[in-house]
Amino acid sequence: MVGIVGYGAYIPKYRIKVEEIAKIWGEDAEALKEGLLLEEKTVPYLDQDSVTIGVEEAQNALKRALVNPEEIGAVYIGSESPPYAVKPSSSIIAEVIGAIPEVHTADYEFACKAGSEAVFVCYGLVKAGLIKYGLGIGADTSQGAPHEPLEYSAAAGGAAFIIGSEDTLADILETYSYTTDTPDFWRRDGEFYPRHGGRFTGEPAYFKHVLGSAKGIMKKAGLKPTDFTYAIFHQPNGKFPLRAGKILGFTMDQMRPGLVAPKVGNTYSGCSLLGLAATLDVAHSGDLILITSFGSGAGSDSFIIKVKEKIEKVRHLAPTVKEMLEDKIYIDYGTYVRYRRMIKE
């Protein structure tokens, strides 16, 4: 059966607390923390972008997959913060991990669900027998404009998954996608910061698609929330995924391991995949996992995943999300402005 052969996560070491940002703009940090369920977010260093983060994720996935990179037939990255407007990120990552030259590469874009798209297409190609392994990556270093709600959540990081049909650590039992044209969040060509529809990003966008996709895949598979050990929903903040899960009938215990936003922020294309990586870090053989991504514009991809015994042998071959969460350096707002190149010469 087609499934996950290896997975790897990466989050940058620098963090900024909600209090530090709120202090600059005279806002109520406690109200923001309670309202968004966010405590702090990751900040990329000056020399990090979605390519360098994608490489770290891919290398960690290879450590767990124990496969020859030359056998990877597709390298796909989903990101809304590529370093080049014209020039692929995926070819750079393929070159670094040694998958070149007999490899298909592409960069995917669909706001926050570009990463799950990359995994989705790898799954399809492996299932069709066109490639032995596919590497799907979600990585972002997204920006939120200063003095804007997104500034508290826009973070950096993500996760990568190597998909194959032999020696899997978790099998993908079912997939499902749910998409409509919903203009809830966008960034026009040439613009540095994204814009969004405020409260419109909630009910008609996030909740409609996440709930639609999660309900759709459970109906397709003939499963209900109580059948799952864990569930992960896209995390633009800490509050939305918990509300979506509660509406669907999932408990806090099912969602807690994959809820990374409060300590990481929203890593956009890497967000739901990072939640899946954190969940696999603690999962055991036989556990059933539901993951539903969300990308503004808008759509959701869902996967039902069953964990296998191999995970116990390979889990500690690469750093866990928890280990990376604990390895951090706090910075002040001035340093944040510098690292994010927010001052233009």
């Binding site: 260093y45 020399d47 972008d49 390519v51 360098t52 770290e56 290398q59």
Partner: peptide, 16 residues
């Protein structure tokens, strides 16, 4: 680790 080493301005090539 893999990082950006140098950028040829804002429009030039990025050396990793």
């Amino acid at each position: 680790v893999f990082r950006k080493i140098q950028e040829d301005g804002s429009s030039g090539i990025i050396a990793y």
